[in-house]
Amino acid sequence: MFPCTIGTNAMESILALTSDKAILEEFRGGDNDHAATAFVRKYQNFVYHTALRYLKSEEDAYDASQEVFIKALKGIAAFRAESSLSTWLYRITVNVCTVMRRKDKLRTFFGLETVVPYARSHEVAPDQIVENKDFDDRFRLILDTLPAKQRETFVLRYFEELSYEEISGMLGTSVGGLKANYYQAVKKIAQRMQQGKDDVKV
């Protein structure tokens, strides 16, 4: 019935599992390890990037991603496919990140740990930003300064190339509202990037 019967090379069959439907059928077929590998490989970047945007720390994002996949793999048998796997995973990721952020806040409040946000590793003084020629770093910094809804909409649409309907399912915003957010995000990024470039010239 499915790629596990294609050949002896397990990796081949894992790579062949690309669609959500195929992954879910593999899970129902009983080959859980096989399906789990395909599932994690397909969504690891998506989950990690989402966690990184929320937690602003690579280490925390990595830990959160692991937790997200463990939760997802434990609950995938009960997944009823009423939404897409990406929407379901996004919700789990946001929940896990929210809990982690709350814990971090508590730890910081009680002085147990100093949280070094991801953005801070790229955070430099404004004059240094101007001097910084690294386009990606500036881009990332500008992305971090966007309002959360605009940033999420931009990343999910531009990088993850999800449809407005899928993003709407994840963020709970109407398609019209998402289009407006996306336009505002792209406009701000373009303006600020242009502004930085002009500042360098001056």
Partner: peptide, 30 residues
């Protein structure tokens, strides 16, 4: 303006840079 700015931006490279760390996720999850 949007086209000019984003033309310089390599989306795939940016994503790949971010994804480097995520590559070992499946192993650790297992």
């Amino acid at each position: 303006q949007i086209r000019t700015v984003f033309a310089r931006f390599d989306k795939m490279e940016f994503k790949a840079d971010l994804s480097l760390r995520a590559r070992s996720l499946s192993v650790h999850v297992h």
